[in-house]
Write a protein that binds this DNA or RNA. Structure first.
Lengths: 300, 300
DNA sequence: CTAGAGATATCATTTCAAATAAAATTTATA
DNA sequence: TATAAATTTTATTTGAAATGATATCTCTAG
């Protein structure tokens, strides 16, 4: 007889025989024919290279190997049952939740939100992937993340976006420097390509005739603010970001014209498909934080 | 599609797909055809009532349910592997060892032996079942115990016996009482029927003309010695038992004629069949304790 | 815009392991 | 010695899993 891989069904048969102390009785309980149970037990013994039962004239009883296997089989089957229960229950709040976000939102809006979520649902591994709005949308469509905070209009038939934050953009510049002067060689510090703020900014610079300017790309808020404070150039950031920054003393803040100043942050997720339970709870948390405001405006 | 029970093979296929992020790649790795893997995954999803993968244009990726199942599947498969390893290894020192013994041996000879065994092999659950020699032999033949300490000649084609202890039997009586007086109505305290000592004793009483006598049966050493001390009657016990007893002051000890006085304790186990590893180690411990004596005499 | 590559899904067919059925064997017991 | 209660063995049937071929989908390159 050749060695057959161990299967759950084989372990169940084994446990039934061990419990009943009889192959026939076990077969009856399992609604199998007795010879089938005999064979399955022999297969197990063959696979393990050891006998699991002593054959007595009336029934069987466990060898020490069988006794050992009993413990394992029970644990294994219990774990399979638990897996079935947990995985098949759509209300299970566990596993992971990966959220995408712009740097700016991650820096100011998300910390309390993520902390609250983690406090409420500690079984869920929270994962934040920062990147430009464009990158986040791509990740969303590729199932790498389940939801994302983005700026700019989202219009994709598989996605749904909700307004969550209204940010006021301000111009930040070094102290003692007229940031609105239409100097040539103006240096502008921005996030890497794809950031909605950057597009916004570039648009304004162009229509207000402040070209040519020099772009310096950064990957983090801290980098931009630090370099502005050091006099390297100017930037555009949400007021909330600048307000909570540690380098406020070394920068000057300037209002922008209405129309340019306002930017909306959206929370985007996949449409139709039944959304994951972890994501559902996350969205509920966002809505709850917004209590007092009108219901979230929903796009698409 | 109907719901199919979860099997190890299904979990292995699932893990391969999760690892590769692709049904085709997983099929290749497992030397299956792609359509087969597709079906097995769908069966799992059907059984669990939830989808495990998002189908992307290139490959698949885990849903949160799939992520949850991953953890379980890995644990389950690891446990199966461990079970295979432990159970199939004949050197595994774990599980249980059930030993049978007479009360007298259990009281005097076994405590240090069992303690030493437990110290050396703490993974093994030691189990001592006391009973008459007759009962122990029956249990041995019924696979309820793996070895037994018995007195009296063992002659059974499936068993093998080794001399382990030479006990000197003594007569114990209340103080101030001539135990050898051939009084009628002599009360004799003995173990329950089947005890080899009792047979020995009854034989001597008969041939030395001390009948009729009255038998009182006990199940424990403590009971017998206590009642002898209280003046209820006499008994026969190994000197080692009496020496280590706590009631020595209230009893008198008397030598018996040679020929009657000596009794051998044997360690009996099943013959031929490859003996269990736990038992093998136990027997080695007995032999080691006997170092200095000649090799154990082996009967049959 | 179309062709092709690279993936999953579907469906008909084959295959082989598991289940059944029935007879042989073993062992205790009446 | 016959009977009963098990297990084992052997031959046969069955059905779930594996295969093979095809359809379908979607991104990419020309």
């Amino acid at each position: 007889m050749i060695s057959v891989p161990i299967e759950i069904s084989g372990l169940k048969i084994f446990l039934a025989v061990a419990k009943k102390g009889s192959i026939s009785k076990a077969a009856e309980e399992l609604h199998y024919v007795q010879s089938n149970v005999t064979i399955r037990i022999k297969q197990l013994e063959e696979t393990l290279g050891t006998s699991l039962f002593y054959r007595k004239s009336r029934g069987v009883c466990l060898t020490n190997s069988g006794y050992l296997l009993c413990d394992y089989a029970e644990k294994i089957i219990a774990m399979v049952r638990e897996a079935e229960k947990v995985v098949s229950n759509p209300e299970t709040t566990a596993g992971q939740l990966v959220i995408g976000s712009m740097e700016t939102t991650a820096a100011t809006r998300l910390p309390p939100l993520l902390a609250e979520y983690h406090r409420s649902y500690p079984q869920v591994d929270l994962n934040l992937v920062t990147g430009t709005s464009e990158e986040s949308l791509k990740r969303l469509l590729d199932y790498q993340i389940e939801g994302a905070f983005v700026a700019g209009v989202v219009s994709h038939k598989e996605l749904i976006a909700e307004k969550v934050y209204e940010e006021e953009l301000v111009l930040v510049a070094p102290i003692n420097n007229d940031p609105f002067a239409k100097r040539a060689g103006l240096k502008v510090l921005v996030f890497r390509a794809g950031c909605a703020y950057r597009a916004h900014l570039e648009n304004w610079l162009r229509i207000s005739g402040r070209v040519p300017y020099k772009i310096i790309e950064f990957g983090s808020i801290e980098g931009i603010l630090g370099c502005v404070a050091a006099g390297m150039g100017i930037s555009f950031l949400p007021r909330s970001v600048v307000d909570s920054s540690r380098v406020q003393e070394n920068i000057s803040i300037h209002n922008l014209p209405t129309g340019i100043a306002n930017m909306t942050t959206w929370f985007v997720r996949r449409k139709n498909e039944k959304q994951g339970h972890n994501l559902k709870l996350f969205r509920e948390l966002i809505v709850r934080e917004d209590t007092g405001k009108e219901d979230l405006a929903i796009i698409q």
